[in-house]
Amino acid sequence: MSDAGERPRDSPGPGPEFGPSALGTKEHWDAAYESELQIFQESGDAGEIWFGEESMIRLIRWMEKQKIPLDSSVLDIGTGNGVLLVELVKDFLTPSAELSGFQICIDKGTFDAISLNPDNAAEKRKQYVKSLCTVLKMEGFFLITSCNWTKEELLNEFKEGFEILEELPTPKFCFGGRIGNSVTALVFQRKK
């Protein structure tokens, strides 16, 4: 679970309303990536792999299992420090006409960050889904890894235009006699 938007993974209710956080602001991420870039230039350190290396491998293995063609177009939404793109060899909330036709879109934490935006997070989430529908081809795949949303909540957020294909296995933990996941990883397909 992220330190931003702290709440139990199994909390009841129709959906989360996360408290505002610096993690939901463009300024925070601009500063974070500027710092990572400087560290990379000075030492060659690629920085943190969000949700751990196993989350990256989980996505790549799923694509291999599905026999996704190697020449498929892939959009890594948010990109972070770009480590996933390196392994696989534009402002998303307002996509241009050129940003469309992707066969696969991947999100590791960007939807989480958007959900923490202090300025109308619910509207930003709706815009995210609308943008995703714009850039992803019909019957294209959307792979999302989240530390703030449960499977059921993500199914609700992406019910318009998407159907669930599968839930990818993620590490489990036990606390207070209850078993849960700290991360949710789902594969959706864009409906026709």
Score class of each variant (00 low, 15 high):
S2I: 01
D3L: 09
A4K: 13
A4C: 15
E6P: 00
R7M: 14
P8S: 14
R9S: 11
P12D: 15
G15C: 04
E17P: 01
E17H: 10
F18E: 13
G19E: 14
G19R: 10
P20E: 08
P20G: 08
P20F: 02
S21Q: 04
A22F: 06
L23P: 00
L23A: 04
G24P: 11
T25V: 10
E27L: 07
D30H: 10
A32V: 12
A32S: 12
E36S: 09
E36Y: 10
Q38H: 09
I39G: 00
E42D: 05
S43L: 08
A46T: 09
A46E: 14
G47W: 02
G47P: 03
E48T: 03
E48L: 07
I49K: 11
I49P: 00
I49Q: 12
G52Y: 08
E53K: 12
E53H: 08
S55H: 05
I57A: 13
L59I: 14
E64C: 10
Q66D: 07
P69T: 05
L70A: 14
L70G: 11
D71F: 05
S73L: 12
V74C: 02
V74T: 07
D76I: 09
G78Q: 06
T79R: 05
G80K: 03
G80C: 07
G82R: 06
V83D: 08
L84V: 14
K90A: 13
D91M: 06
F92R: 07
L93S: 11
T94H: 15
P95C: 04
A97E: 14
L99T: 11
L99D: 08
L99V: 11
G101N: 13
F102A: 11
Q103R: 12
Q103M: 07
I104F: 01
I104T: 02
C105I: 09
I106Q: 02
F111A: 04
F111G: 03
A113S: 15
L116F: 10
N120C: 07
A121C: 10
A121G: 07
A122T: 13
A122R: 13
E123N: 06
E123T: 08
K124S: 09
R125L: 14
Q127R: 14
Y128P: 05
Y128N: 06
K130F: 09
S131Y: 02
C133L: 14
T134S: 15
V135E: 04
K137W: 01
K137M: 13
F141D: 07
F141A: 12
L143E: 03
L143V: 11
I144F: 04
I144C: 09
I144Y: 07
S146Q: 10
S146G: 11
C147D: 01
N148V: 01
W149G: 00
W149Y: 15
E152R: 12
N156M: 02
E160D: 15
E160M: 05
F162G: 11
E163P: 02
E167Y: 05
T170V: 14
P171Q: 15
P171F: 12
K172P: 00
K172D: 05
K172H: 09
F173T: 13
F173Y: 15
F173S: 08
G176I: 03
G177S: 08
G177K: 05
I179W: 07
G180R: 12
S182P: 01
S182I: 03
T184K: 02
A185P: 00
A185G: 05
V187Y: 07
F188D: 09
R190W: 02
R190F: 02
K191L: 15
